[in-house]
Design a protein around this nucleic acid. Structure first.
Lengths: 338, 338
DNA sequence: ATGAAAGCGCTAACAT
DNA sequence: ATGTTAGCGCTTTCAT
């Protein structure tokens, strides 16, 4: 029961060759139905299990896709992963998932590890820290499909899946302006990542177009955890101009900010209006409900999976670097209404 | 640059044997320092990368740990996964993660797939649907380490990591009773899973101990999504006894229920008090803040990782089935206060 | 300290 | 339709 049976065992048992066994197991067309049946039965009886190590070595492929994300435990990211997993799983691929924890070093290490472990493709959402992209060359050099999603970088022949972050940032800010906000600040993190840089650009663009005495002001936070919200409040309290609008690059932080604001005596949206980003589930359950940009994470994950699978199956020309831009949407709730 | 170099290439290049190259690369003690240095240099120059397929086949191990969870996109689960990943990554292990989506069939399939892909160990949190556990025998038969966390089942020689769910359910309910609740209902899902069954048992025990005319009543929901909250409200509205306390097996659902309650004119906690489960971040940002049971997900993940690694390294007797019970804690916030 | 060679188990090109 | 056989690249026992 515990001794593992190989195709050689099956071959001997049935008096046929290992090749025939292998072919039968793989449903090769040129094997007779009766032989296949015999083999399958023997396999079941003996508890035969394919040895992927050997199979992978022979085929030089692993049916495995690597994924590197900044962190697993964010609502958005785990939703994207869920989408990727669903697609991969249905196609018979396994997912090897690792976290960079926003560190360039860890991202490098994970890239190397995943390469060596022989993943057939790699999906990456970049760490905030990452400034250099040479570590991905082991993939690009060997033409192993590499795709970036959400936190992307433009590399030759690497598809990207994003939303139009600049437009989203613009809309969020424009909305606040239309609600009468005069002094709108932007709260973000990792401004060297294009996602955040572009939202910031959209914010600035909106301010500029509605020329008056608006002052552009971005508060950079280290991450989207509760203590960072305090920094924002401190700024607001000491600002010479009365802040009346906040566009935050993350719902989770926006929510903490609102909480902090309220416990500091500010009324949301009366005194200060807030727009977040992502449309995390939390946006709908807090008081006041949070206006935000809907960012379709599950769909992004599914598309990332599908895109990489079609590259793997060769149904898309791998030389064609594509860029998929998903639709986003401003959702107006209570937190930003006049 | 694109042609892959093997240990044979290095051996030829340096005029030594492949065995020596292999040993050098693995820092084998009986290789001279100079030879090692030569090899490492040549490896670097040629861009040599180990081929794990071959290595795995030879060693019959993959440095990979499989994980099956009900779903990736829950705050609790992604936090646990984050803990597992951190430990595994530091120990040089990769994580293959898959979702059962609460379906027994998918769990079976994933178990088989992960087995065949040669994971060195398997970590599982069971699907709600799963009633039969034979699919895990491929692991237990071959003494491949198998560990259950959160949603566990008692299998021979399989460690489990849990909290004392019965005590937690008891405390939550007892607390509501002490706050003056007379008609407390319990909302849960997947009552055939011990996690939920035990919380329910704790709930019943608390009611029984505080003998009076309390009626035990459990509302089973299909999952913890918003629409399910409506079912709960419907029950409350039509109940002959005025419901004044709710113990919910999940913060995410508790939060939706509170929202529904409020929009139906109920005051929380004045009319109805609510206690959730897990201490998701959302518990602290909603209004009123949610009382809940703190369930240390990250710690659970780290422990699961550590436990399985020590089994793998043989530093723990694999025959010793251990059960780790993590501390939980009732956190009293506004939603349940008199 | 190093080398020779036999696996590890599967696949596929090339027979038959 | 089936068999033969040469890899796939690394590890490791057994020499030397």
């Amino acid at each position: 029961m515990s001794k593992k049976t190989t195709i050689y065992d099956l071959a001997k048992r049935l008096g046929i060759s290992p090749a025939t066994v292998s072919r039968s197991l793989n449903d090769h067309p040129s094997i007779s139905g009766k032989t296949k049946k015999k083999v399958l039965e023997a396999a079941k009886e003996t508890g035969y299990r394919i040895n992927k190590f050997a199979s992978n070595l022979s085929l030089q492929k692993s049916n495995t896709i690597g994924v590197i994300v900044p962190r697993l435990n964010s609502d958005f990211m785990s939703t994207v992963l869920s989408g990727i997993e669903t697609i991969a799983n249905n196609a018979g691929y396994n997912l090897v998932i690792s976290q960079s924890l926003e560190q360039e070093e860890k991202e490098k290490f994970n890239t190397k590890t995943l390469f060596e472990s022989g993943v057939d493709a790699l999906l990456v959402s970049l760490a905030n820290e990452t400034m250099n992209y040479d570590h991905f060359s082991i993939f690009t050099d060997r033409k192993i499909p590499l795709l970036f999603f959400d936190r992307v970088i433009d590399l030759p022949n690497c598809p990207t899946i994003i939303i139009d972050n600049e437009a989203a940032g613009y809309q969020a800010t424009e909305h606040l302006i239309q609600q009468g906000c005069k002094h709108i600040i932007h709260v973000s993190s990792g401004l060297n990542r294009s996602v955040y840089k572009l939202r910031y650009a959209g914010y600035r663009k909106a301010l500029k177009e509605n020329e008056n005495n608006f002052r552009e002001r971005v508060i950079q936070v280290d991450n989207f955890s509760p203590p960072e919200a305090k920094k924002v409040i401190d700024f607001i309290k000491t600002s010479v101009h009365p802040i009346d609008g906040i566009f935050v690059s993350s719902d989770s932080l926006a929510v903490y900010i609102i909480k902090e604001l309220r416990s500091n005596g500010y009324q949301v949206p009366n005194d200060i209006k807030v727009v977040g980003f992502n449309n995390d589930p939390v946006a709908q359950v807090i008081t006041p409900e949070l206006s935000t940009i809907e960012y379709p994470g599950y769909k992004m994950g599914k598309l990332a999976g599908q895109s990489i699978l079609s590259h793997l199956s060769g149904s898309i020309n791998i030389e064609t670097a594509d860029q998929i831009i998903l639709k986003h949407r401003l959702i107006i709730r209570e937190s930003s209404q006049k």
